[in-house]
Structures are given as C-alpha cells and as structure tokens.
C-alpha cells in the first residue's frame, strides 16, 4: 500500500433488525464485514465477493441487495434486515419453516440470502407466480438443491 493514508472513521446510525444502532467504523469497510465482524451477525455469508452469488444478500430499505457490494457508510440512515432479524418472537419465519418442510436446504450456505430475496419479494407481492419467483432469486446461486424445492417452498409460503 502506497503512502500512509489516514483513515477517518465514520459515524453511522441505522436500524438493524428493528433496533436502532449507532456506531463508528472504518470508511473502507464493506457492509458485509460490518455485519459479520463488527456486529457478529454471521448468518450473512460471503461467497464470490463480486455480486454474483447472492450469499451476502440483506435487505436495505425493503430491497434485497448484495452486502459485498456496499460500503458500510452507504447504509447511514437506512433500515437493514438480516437473516437473524426475520424470526418472530423466537419462532421461525414462515419462509424458514417452509424451506425446512420442502427440503429446500442442503449445505445451507446459500439459504440466508435465498430466504431474504424471497422475503423482499413476498413483502412486495404476496402471490408471485413461478416466473416471478425465479426472477427474484436469479441472483442467488445454490450448488446443492437444484432450486426446485426452494421454488416450491417460496410458492407455498403465505404471509
């Protein structure tokens, strides 16, 4: 690394899974690393690091995004939801229930991202058809399941 650059810490305020958070972090930290390293929320996974696999998907202001493609600073003032935040009073979210019921989980690595993509979809569109579901999870790669069970699980989830 050339020159000794002085990094100015940045102050962030946002809500995380419904709770207000205030913290300071480094300006060159990705949202993914903020979640996993600073906040210990390791449900968000890192696969490709370049926006192709969707394992790092989280929800920012109701939209699914790749947290590997965002800097921490960009979420200032936003509402973030991670996989840790979708269970309700200690019960699994209906999507999570159905992923289990339909055998949509194998190694599990893609699942947090997959579920959050489905979560963003269902919050916008309660009864998506199969094409819409496929489009919504097109940015989430799964090397295990072949997608069929995942699509079934989503299709059968009623919020």
């Amino acid at each position: 690394m050339k020159k000794n650059k002085i990094l100015k810490k940045i102050k962030l305020r946002f809500t995380l899974n419904g709770e207000p958070v205030e913290l300071e972090t480094l300006p060159n930290k990705r949202l993914l690393d903020l979640l996993r390293d600073d906040l210990n929320l390791t449900g968000t996974k890192e696969g490709c690091s370049i926006g192709e696999c969707g394992a790092c998907t989280v929800i920012v202001n109701d939209k699914a995004v790749n947290s590997c493609l965002m800097l921490a600073g960009e979420i200032n003032g936003s509402a973030i939801i991670t996989i840790e935040g979708i269970s309700q009073n200690g019960n699994l979210h209906p999507l999570q229930e159905n992923f289990l019921k339909f055998g949509a989980v194998q190694c599990g690595f893609c699942i947090p991202g997959m579920i959050l993509s489905a979560y963003a979809l269902l919050n916008k569109n309660r009864r998506p058809d199969e094409e819409t579901i496929k489009e919504a999870i097109a940015g989430n790669l799964c090397r295990c399941t072949g997608y069929k069970q995942i699509i079934e699980a989503i299709k059968n989830t009623k919020l």
């Binding site: 926006g51 969707g54 699914a64 995004v65 790749n66 493609l69 993509s117 097109a138 940015g139 989430n140």
Partner: peptide
C-alpha cells in the same frame, strides 16, 4: 441487468 440485488443498486 444483473439480478434483482444488482438492479436495486
């Protein structure tokens, strides 16, 4: 373009 996640950003 890309995927939903990419198009959102």
């Amino acid at each position: 373009v890309g995927s939903v996640q990419i198009r959102n950003r």
